[in-house]
Write a protein that binds this DNA or RNA. Structure first.
Lengths: 258, 258
DNA sequence: TAGTGGTCTAGACCACCAT
DNA sequence: TGGTGGTCTAGACCACTAT
């Protein structure tokens, strides 16, 4: 079980304790290391600005060449997840979103926070190349009138979730089924924000007037604590949803340079 | 065709004929090679899609390690000036590259992560109702070509910042001025994400083809540690910027309800 | 088959930072 | 002074492409 298997004493922690690299897995070593570090960072294993294990330490620990470590680091640097400083070390550079009013968390949380009932309508439920494609409109409402706020598409491989096409996700929460029936526990998500043009389907669902020039769309993966993909998802947001974010810069004396 | 007379023959050309690397110049070897290749590419020594000398050829020619050649190549690839294909070679490319960013850090962070120089162009600088309206295009680049990634608008009240309209923010960082001249220290921001339709100005700045249906825009306040507004800002992102978000649900073993 | 870029090893020396 | 990342060497094997 991943998650709370930490060890060590004296405030010790080891976000990489359960990580092992397999040269025969078919995946490149530097990619495995990159994924492991990335997962630890995005899981919040280290705080903003905290120093992660040095290149030499990672080299010794995983018995690989430093070049391989540096290849992994290069990917993290390019993504802006870490920054490196000679003489000091490699620091986490991830700026977590805090106190977002409307976040990308679960829709049920959002509904609960606003004190309204979440409503789900299944719009599509089809199998495509061994994958269940589930399209749901999510809204808040009353009985007579529902305000539709999201259009969620989920891709669920049948080999990973045998029989999942038999559920009625208008009546049951998808995540509840994933947890109780398949033992999968969504813990975090990695999303890419894009703008998509209006379609008839979106106009139909959101009923927005006037027609917006584009909709905000978040596409990506929902992952379990170990960094394994639970589902692939795409969420289109109604213009009525106010997407607010709070970011903070640096720590203590650190300041944004521009 | 005077002087260096190796190879060539039929249509022979050698864009690197006058290039020599000096290990004692103080500049790193891979940077010297990078500059030489970059210069040759930008002066049109090779056509779009044309294959430049292979890594092994450059290694032998300049008597350096292949790692050093690859370090130079990595810079060119990151700038989108070349693309590499295994088995084929390294080809000149002028395709735009995308920039992956996690959350909304400062623009300097983006530049630092991509290892390129941040560039600022002041597009508007006017006073309106006692407020300095400053519109800046922010980009990454090079001397020859700049890739514009943001269009930032800042609103700065003159009563709060007397004389701020006298600075040249193409030469100085806005935040550096706010800190050093006005003692204001930006620490965090609260932003609202929206989609805005294309305008001629945006098309002009980003030069995106095809025209996107909308641009991602973050509008809100930049605050100091005490929560006082430092500036009001609006940032429009180029479609080339890949906006990534990581979210976490609950804490430890907590799980999303839906 | 010969050549390409992709990955990896096992070293080395350096400038820089914290102590 | 010991540790860090930055640079560099001199190899190696691989998957892939072109011929």
């Amino acid at each position: 079980m991943a998650g709370s298997g930490d060890l060590d004493a004296a405030g010790g922690k080891d976000p990489l304790s359960s990580v092992a690299l397999d040269p025969y897995s078919g995946e490149q070593l530097y990619r495995q290391l990159y994924r492991s570090l990335r997962n630890a960072i995005l899981t919040g294993a280290w705080d903003e600005g905290e120093i992660i294990p040095s290149e030499n330490e990672l080299r010794d620990r995983f018995a690989i060449a430093r070049t391989t470590v540096r290849n992994a680091m290069a990917l993290l640097v390019r993504e802006g997840l870490v920054r490196q400083e000679r003489g000091k070390g490699t620091m986490v550079s991830h700026r977590p979103v805090s106190h977002s009013v409307w976040n990308f968390g679960s829709f049920t949380d959002l509904a609960r926070a606003s004190g309204q009932r979440p409503v789900t309508r299944v719009i599509e439920h089809r199998i495509e190349d061994g994958v269940l494609v589930l399209v749901r409109a999510r809204g808040l409402g009353g009985l007579g009138q529902v305000e539709w706020l999201n259009l969620d598409t989920s891709w669920l491989p049948l080999d990973q979730y045998p029989g999942i096409d038999g559920y009625d996700f208008a009546a049951q929460s998808l995540y509840a089924v994933l947890r109780s029936k398949y033992g999968r526990h969504p813990a975090r998500s990695e999303l890419l924000l894009t703008v998509i043009p209006p379609t008839d389907q979106l106009r139909d669902v959101f009923g927005q007037m006037p027609d917006p020039s584009g909709y905000l769309c978040a596409t990506g993966d929902v992952l379990d604590p170990g960094g394994n993909r639970v589902e692939r998802t795409s969420i289109v947001y109604s213009p009525k949803v106010e997407m607010k974010f709070a970011t903070r810069w640096g720590h203590g004396t650190a300041e944004p340079a521009a």
